[in-house]
Amino acid sequence: MSAVVKIRDVSVSYRENVALKGANLDIEEGSFLCVIGPNGAGKTTLLTVINGLGKIIKGNVKVLGMVLNKRNIFAIRRNIGYVPQKQDIDPRFPITVREVVDIGRHCRIGLLRRMNEADREIVESAMKVVGISELAARPIGHLSGGEQQKVAIARALAQEPKIMLLDEPTSNLDPKARCEIMELINKVYWERRLTIVFVTHLLGHVSDRCRQAVLMKRGRIVWQGNINKALNRKLLADLYECPVEALERDMPLAIN
């Protein structure tokens, strides 16, 4: 097993405040990594380091064997499926669900090329996996939040990425939709042998496929290791700075 992502002493800053401080992280190929931490811990920022959206002020990053720099960045991004935390989708934009999923394909085939039959099939199968085939011709603005989340996942899948970055894909969903998306992610992980980085602050949302965990707080990676050890009362109470009882009320099943 080799590391597909190597983050070495990376700091990220948004103007005046430093959102990520000296992070070191290796992500193995084919692993399912969960990033856990309270609001503002820097989880999203850590993801944006991997696909080069964040502004790195120190340190270096290697993704899929390529150093993240201006030259490689397009190649790296094309191999990473990104489902952002909040998608600022203009509900009035004239675009259908299928056309949104097409975007994932478009970036792979490159400039001045058209989608061929194979590409179209990939798009259709991505929509089928996610279960939005019936919505394909609807305008994106007419979908509910959970359905839009599925569209975002289908778009990322259509990219046939090597790495998937999922930023709290389940946080705004009802229990049914959450289970569906979790199952979907598990299935995709299993079938496609992807590397998945999954961000959440809700411990009940951690997938049972997940093996590794990274705990973050105030811009630092404070702990990394096996997920079962991470879901530990004392560790989590420290991480969220709240009493264990409160954590248990929130997610009775997950913690041991």
């Binding site: 696909n51 959206l53 960045i73 397009f74 190649a75 790296i76 991004r77 094309r78 191999n79 990473i80 990104y82 952002p84 998608q87 600022d88 989708i89 203009d90 934009f93 675009i95 056309e99 949104v100 975007i103 994932g104 478009h106 970036c107 400039l111 778009r155 990219q159």
Partner: peptide, 16 residues
């Protein structure tokens, strides 16, 4: 179309 739809998505998926 991708840029008009959502600049961030276009950027994150490796379009110029």
């Amino acid at each position: 179309r991708a840029v008009l739809f959502n600049c961030e998505i276009a950027r994150a998926s490796g379009m110029p």
